[in-house]
Amino acid sequence: MKVGLIMGSDSDFPVMKKALDIFKEFGVEYEVLLASAHRTPAAVREFVSTAEDRGISAFVVGAGMAAHLPGVVASYTTLPVIGVPL
């Protein structure tokens, strides 16, 4: 299994790092993207829409103070999206 972890800004990293630690502990492969649903929507769309081709089968997504990013990710895929409230 490979997971795509997306966070909206570098200030989200302290919380999202906990997910990365769990992935490492259980040997789950991952890719990380730092991108905003508002500032860099094309980067989000590209990462998500090509994810299956790269073997990603689920997303863990968090952005501080808003639920926009997980919703935008979900709009580009039928893969599971887990939104992390920050």
Results as ranks from 00 to 15, higher is better:
M1R: 12
M1W: 01
M1T: 09
M1F: 14
M1D: 03
M1G: 04
K2C: 11
K2I: 12
K2M: 09
V3Y: 14
G4Q: 07
G4A: 11
G4F: 12
G4W: 09
G4P: 05
L5F: 05
I6C: 10
M7R: 13
M7G: 02
M7T: 00
G8E: 04
G8W: 08
S9H: 03
S9Q: 04
D10M: 09
D10L: 04
S11T: 13
D12G: 05
F13E: 11
P14D: 09
P14C: 05
V15Q: 10
V15M: 10
V15A: 13
V15W: 08
M16F: 05
M16E: 07
K17T: 06
A19V: 14
A19I: 12
A19D: 09
L20M: 14
D21G: 01
D21N: 02
D21F: 00
I22Q: 08
F23R: 08
F23D: 13
K24E: 15
K24V: 01
F26D: 13
F26A: 05
V28G: 00
E29Q: 07
E29F: 00
E29N: 06
Y30R: 06
E31K: 13
E31D: 13
V32F: 08
V32T: 15
L33A: 10
L33E: 12
L33Y: 02
L34C: 06
A35G: 08
S36R: 06
A37L: 07
H38P: 00
R39D: 14
R39I: 04
T40L: 04
T40W: 00
P41C: 04
P41Y: 03
P41K: 05
P41S: 03
P41M: 06
A42R: 14
A43T: 05
A43Y: 10
R45K: 15
E46L: 00
E46R: 06
E46V: 00
E46P: 03
E46N: 08
E46K: 04
V48N: 09
V48R: 05
S49A: 02
T50E: 13
A51E: 14
E52V: 12
E52P: 09
E52Q: 15
D53C: 07
D53M: 05
D53A: 13
R54Q: 11
R54E: 10
R54D: 11
I56V: 15
I56W: 06
I56A: 12
S57G: 14
S57A: 12
S57Y: 03
A58T: 01
F59Y: 14
V60R: 05
V61L: 02
G62S: 02
A63G: 06
G64K: 03
G64C: 06
M65D: 07
M65R: 15
M65Q: 14
M65N: 04
H68C: 15
H68Q: 15
H68T: 13
H68G: 15
H68E: 09
L69P: 10
L69N: 12
P70S: 08
P70K: 01
P70I: 01
G71Q: 09
G71W: 04
G71Y: 07
V73C: 01
V73W: 07
V73E: 10
S75E: 11
S75C: 01
Y76L: 04
Y76D: 11
Y76I: 04
Y76R: 04
Y76W: 12
T77F: 12
T78V: 01
P80D: 11
V81H: 08
I82A: 14
I82N: 11
G83Q: 01
G83F: 08
V84S: 12
P85F: 10
P85L: 06
P85W: 12
P85M: 01
P85H: 05
L86V: 00
L86R: 05
L86M: 09
